[in-house]
């Protein structure tokens, strides 16, 4: 299991750094949207909630591109090749870890870029950092299992969007509310939100781990 996990992570990262498909999609989307919002608004967005909404919308749509990690295995006919050597569980966990790495990196880059371009003040830096980490990890867990479910379907793009809506909605709602608190002078009271994100991610991750071998079976 551990061997399969490590080798799959190394393989996915190596392929990604060579092909640069996901990285380019994420960076082009996030940079263009953030800078466009900055220019269009002229920096006059005052409400912390609007800033929080815009920030998480950018992170959410940038992160959706990580689904390509699973789709690539199907489109390039390498899924069976991988299964010949490693268990479905190790494949799933490796994709989850790679997705988390990419999503956390995306959140960090987009977050810093947004704060810089929009000149937003963060009143609770540690709370904001924890929220970015917990929120992006929770989104990574969601996108991993949704990508796994939809990868074997022909109309995967449409199905991915439809399934993403109910699963990511609770996460987006919670992170927007908590990030708003970080951007305002309110007393930070989002520890329950962080606990919710951790519990939600853990539950979804465990259920996905159990279900994945049944999904990733027929080709």
């Amino acid at each position: 299991m551990i061997k399969g996990l490590v080798r799959n992570i190394v393989k996915d990262l190596r392929i990604e750094f060579r092909s640069k498909v996901v990285i380019s999609l994420i960076l082009s989307f996030s940079v263009i949207v953030t800078i466009s919002i900055g220019f269009a608004s002229g920096g006059i967005i005052g409400s912390p909630m609007v800033h929080a909404i815009l920030l998480w919308v950018i992170i959410f749509f940038s992160g959706m591109n990580t689904s390509h990690l699973f789709y690539r295995e199907i489109e390039e006919h390498t899924a069976l090749f991988n299964l010949m050597y490693y268990s479905p569980e190790s494949i799933f966990v490796s994709k989850l870890i790679v997705n988390c790495i990419i999503m956390v990196a995306v959140a960090a880059i987009v977050g810093l870029l947004y704060l810089f371009v929009m000149d937003v003040s963060v009143y609770n830096v540690s709370g904001f950092a924890i929220m970015m980490l917990a929120g992006s990890s929770a989104l990574a867990v969601c996108t991993t299992i949704i990508a796994a479910i939809t990868a074997l379907v022909q109309a995967r793009g449409g199905l991915f969007t439809i399934l993403s809506f109910p699963i990511t909605l609770p996460i987006i709602t919670v992170v927007i509310k908590s990030t708003t608190q970080c951007f305002s002078k309110e007393i930070y009271s989002s520890w329950s939100a962080i606990l919710f994100l951790l519990a939600f991610s853990t539950l979804l991750g465990v259920v996905s781990y159990i279900l994945f071998p049944y999904i990733w079976r027929e080709f």
């Binding site: 393989k11 190596r14 092909s19 390039e76 006919h77 390498t78 010949m84 080709f219």
Partner: peptide, 13 residues
């Protein structure tokens, strides 16, 4: 061990 048109090695490696 499978050798088939619907199975490929990793082409970026």
């Amino acid at each position: 061990g499978i050798v088939a048109p619907y199975i490929q090695c990793y082409n970026h490696l």
